[in-house]
Simulated scan of single mutants.
Amino acid sequence: MEPVRVNLGPRSYDIRFAGDLGSFADFVRLSVPRAKLALVVADTHTERHATTVRDALESVGLRTGMAVVPSGESSKSLAEFGKLLDALADLPADRQTAVVAVGGGVVGDLAGFAAAAYNRGLPLVMVPTTLLSMVDSSVGGKTGINHAKGKNLIGAFHQPAGVWIDPAFLGTLPDREFRSGLAEVVKYGVIQDAEFFAWQEANAAAILARDLEAVRYLVAKSCRLKADVVEQDEREETGLRAILNYGHTFAHAFETVGGYGAWLHGEAVAAGMVCASRLAEKLGRIPADVTERQVKLLTAFGLPLHPKAEWPIEPMIDVMRRDKKAAAGRLRFVLPTRMGHVELVDGVPEDLVREVLC
């Protein structure tokens, strides 16, 4: 598999697809050539992978430390962030010390934010181990932690020095985690590439069976699609990068009100996309078949289509008012205009939002 290059001038980096840890160690050496020390960060589910990564780094002369956080969304907290800063101080880390994040989106977001903050920025290498982190959170430089008032409210843009993706990690990924990651893959088809969406429809069975060729293609394609957006709007300043948040305004409300960890992120995104698409229908922006195609594919992938009935609507609306895309309390949503294209829509009436949440 050919590398995907994310072209960002002096912050450019490669996404490499391989499974040889000897090559991984060489990749880290090339990505962070001045590093002599590395902190490997994992959670309790990826500690075994992180130990292998640490051994590979030590084989090429890097001194390493390791920090392990509890698995789950609750680790994206100020408390765990502080512990990582303590671990870096204890090494002690200098400005060339690499932070190597081995895990899913939680590990990548948390370790990435620590790398962004310590000494005003340390080099970061992402080693995603879940489908969701491979196709989404490891690419693009968004890092952060959660706040009781909203998901990812505290964070920073901090591009990695490199991303290493080994599809073999997916062989041991629990089925629920794998399906969760597929929500972000579906998203890329809706927002950018109608042909990619159609490919997923035609290959749903092979994808669910984790056919190696199908998985390799969907991971590499998703990374390329995200890189295309990030290259044009790295820090969400032109509005283009906001398209990557399709379904996420709803999803973050579900995660906040339902309690972090009640749903996996991709599960919330799946239901959020359906809500956003139904909202677009109510606004007359799309015909019903655009929504129904999404519903059919998400159903095939075993993902939820609507929030849980017991989650109160008004607190969800309140979370949406604080969403990063909101402006002066006015709700803004990324909504489809056709399959393969979405737009950021301002001033959406709250009554319509309540209707799609019912």
Rank of each mutant, 00 (worst) to 15 (best):
W164N: 02
G259F: 04
R176C: 14
A214H: 15
A183Q: 03
G155W: 03
R179M: 14
A156I: 10
R235E: 09
I154Y: 09
N152I: 14
A204S: 08
R241L: 10
S180K: 01
A227Y: 06
E236S: 07
G259D: 02
I243Q: 14
G150S: 14
L225V: 07
H147R: 09
D233S: 08
G171M: 14
Q200P: 09
T256V: 13
L212K: 02
I154L: 06
L225R: 15
R235W: 11
A202K: 14
E236Y: 06
E231L: 03
G239Y: 09
A194R: 14
Y260A: 05
P160M: 13
K221I: 12
A242C: 02
W199V: 01
V229K: 13
L173I: 08
E236I: 15
Y260F: 14
A148H: 07
R235V: 06
E213K: 04
V190S: 14
Y246L: 12
T256Q: 12
N203V: 01
A156C: 12
V219S: 00
D228C: 04
L212H: 02
T172D: 09
H147L: 11
R235Q: 06
L225N: 11
A227C: 11
F197A: 14
D175S: 05
Q232Y: 03
I207Y: 02
W164Y: 04
A156W: 12
G155R: 05
E236T: 11
F197M: 10
D166V: 00
R210I: 11
C223H: 01
F157P: 12
I207M: 01
G162H: 15
A161P: 10
D233M: 05
R241E: 05
A227M: 08
E201F: 12
H158R: 12
H147A: 11
F250A: 02
A214G: 10
F250C: 03
V215W: 13
K226L: 09
Y260Q: 02
A242R: 00
L170R: 11
A198D: 15
G239V: 07
D228T: 02
Q232V: 01
E213D: 15
K149E: 10
D233E: 14
I165T: 00
I191R: 09
D211A: 13
E177C: 09
A205M: 10
N146V: 11
V186W: 00
A220L: 08
A227K: 15
I243C: 11
T256F: 12
K151N: 12
Q200Y: 09
L208W: 03
F196Y: 05
F157D: 15
L240W: 07
A198W: 08
W164T: 02
S222I: 01
K187V: 07
H252C: 06
Q192P: 03
A209Q: 13
A202E: 10
F196V: 05
I145N: 11
L208P: 01
A161R: 06
D193A: 09
